[in-house]
């Protein structure tokens, strides 16, 4: 009896979470523009979406910013975590405190503060400013996931490698780096999704005339929802599902478990 009630509860929450998404997917195939009527099956919203240049360029911008900011944030974050080992406890705690600010602070404040900075420095808003902003809020996510790995590094293995005649850099790449790679990978994944999902910080740092998917959707919605957006939602949902499925199958998730 208790089991059944539990299952029902899980089902209700799942319905609450997924029913809206599935409604969108259904609507994306509805040939009627009205959301109240089913006008028959169509793929025209998908073809329209794919030929829409604004969507294409927003998608390109979003992906380019996500990929570039992930790469930069991962490199800077990882190097900093490793450097932390050699820093005094005081410097370390101050630096970690500052790093936590973008995570704790409200996105709107982070966005505004960066906007003020870019205006003050007269940096023209657009791709560059968004990228800088995304790198800034992504570094903490990378550090958050690399730091625990760095703390657990077994230095005896490193010293053993030196003892056996390895150079410092060779020993580093052979003993320390493999230990922290799982942290780097999950940090990079986290940074990538955070960048893809961000709206607020992008909104304040983008300037006019430059759109990512998030800001494009926000503008569209204010003008009234076009069924193309449903097609976009459906595609994104399927891509997310597929990526998740792959990440479960891929050997990478095994590395994460270790």
């Amino acid at each position: 009896m208790k089991k059944i009630l539990e299952r029902i509860y899980l089902a209700i929450i799942l319905i609450f979470m997924y029913a809206p998404i599935f409604t969108l997917i259904v609507l994306s195939f509805n040939s009627s523009k009205s959301r109240a009527k089913w006008g028959g099956f169509t793929l025209k919203w998908y073809t329209q979406l794919l030929s829409d240049e604004a969507v294409a360029s927003a998608l390109f911008n979003t992906l380019a910013i996500a990929i570039l900011s992930t790469i930069f944030a991962t490199i800077i974050g990882t190097f900093t975590c490793i450097a932390m080992i050699g820093l005094s406890a005081k410097v370390r705690s101050i630096l970690m405190g500052i790093t936590n600010i973008p995570m704790i602070n409200a996105d709107i404040v982070t966005g505004i503060s960066l906007m003020l900075l870019f205006r003050f420095l007269h940096i023209g808003s657009g791709f560059g400013t968004i990228l800088l902003a995304h790198i800034t809020f992504n570094i903490p996510f990378v550090m958050l996931s690399v730091m625990p790995r760095v703390k657990n590094i077994n230095f005896y293995v490193y010293e053993a490698a030196l003892d056996l005649g390895a150079s410092r850099s060779y020993a580093f790449f052979k003993t320390i780096l493999p230990d922290i790679v799982p942290g780097i990978v999950s940090g990079a994944l986290m940074a990538f999704t955070m960048s893809l999902d961000d709206f607020i910080i992008t909104y304040f740092t983008k300037g006019s005339g430059f759109e990512t998917l998030s800001t494009l959707i926000y503008n569209e919605v204010k003008r009234g929802i076009q069924p193309e957006i449903y097609a976009l939602s459906a595609i994104i949902f399927i891509v997310v599902l597929a990526l998740l499925f792959i990440s479960y199958r891929a050997p990478m998730s095994k590395a994460k478990d270790n």
Partner: peptide, 23 residues
């Protein structure tokens, strides 16, 4: 999982559902 879906699209679903002539 819905966390990975774009934040604005998630919000948009409820616009569609709740509108006067919505779903």
């Amino acid at each position: 999982l819905p966390m990975w879906m774009n934040f604005l699209l998630r919000t948009l679903t409820w616009m569609t559902l709740l509108e006067k002539k919505g779903v």
